[in-house]
């Protein structure tokens, strides 16, 4: 909050710093997606099989599905608190370009959920007996992919924020849009497991991320304007 008091018109960096600060100060919120990620992974050996060969086969898909769900669970937070305490209104009436403020918030969301999740993924891969040569592709694909998930999720979250009860609705709306990135993300890892060149699907993920990086902040800020004009 001190950042907003200091500068009259908070911009991109102010929002990145503010949202990061807020998520760190309420550490339970910041850790929840990570804990969820690890705990649900624990359910897999318990429910399917602890056999390393079987787990290794499922690992690429599992890691990706869990990362997707963890992002989905946390994406509601991106606008809902701002909506409740009125700072979203301040963002709407600020004279500078709202797209960059929204982009700042999205990047902060990725830094507080997607990036830690990516960094944690080798540990999960280890627990699921993922072959060694797949660690690099998994980390790179999750890094790009979780950024995409945050960007697209922010568009959906902006649609539902004025309802005040996103939860299930966000999941219903976002999951169909998440399917393509899941396809390419898991393929990158499975290609690596099969000792095939994995740069192809990764390049497509990069292209999708570039497209989302341009379009999603624009779309989300336009939606926030529409849904707050009454």
């Amino acid at each position: 909050m001190s950042n907003i008091a200091r500068s009259t018109h908070p911009g991109f960096m102010d929002y990145v710093r503010r949202d990061l600060y807020l998520s760190i100060s309420s550490s339970s919120d910041a850790c929840a997606p990570l804990l969820f990620f690890c705990m649900v992974i624990t359910l897999v050996p318990l429910s399917i099989s602890p056999n390393p060969e079987q787990l290794a086969e499922l690992a690429p898909g599992l890691v990706w599905i869990m990362a997707l769900l963890a992002t989905l669970l946390s994406i509601e937070r991106i606008f809902v608190f701002d909506h409740e305490d009125g700072s979203l209104e301040q963002m709407l009436i600020a004279p500078n370009m709202m797209t960059f403020s929204v982009l700042g918030k999205i990047i902060a969301h990725w830094l507080s959920t997607g990036l830690p999740l990516t960094l944690l993924s080798p540990a999960v891969g280890l627990m699921l007996a993922l072959p060694e040569n797949a660690y690099g592709p998994m980390v790179i694909s999750l890094g790009l992919g979780t950024a995409y998930l945050s960007l697209v999720g922010a568009v959906i979250a902006s649609l539902t924020v004025s309802l005040g009860r996103g939860g299930f609705l966000i999941s219903l709306l976002a999951v169909p849009l998440y399917m393509p990135i899941l396809v390419f993300g898991t393929s990158t890892v499975t290609y690596a497991v099969a000792h095939m060149p994995w740069s192809g699907p990764l390049a497509i993920m990069g292209a999708m991320l570039a497209l989302a990086l341009v379009l999603c902040p624009l779309a989300a800020s336009a939606i926030l304007r529409v849904t707050h004009s009454g």
Binding site: I156, L159, M179, P180, V183, T227
Partner: peptide
Amino acid sequence: KAGAILALVGTVNIPIIYKSVDW
């Protein structure tokens, strides 16, 4: 308005979804 926007977001995604599923 919200329904229309979501439909448009879906339209942008339909070719991507279609291509990815095909692939």
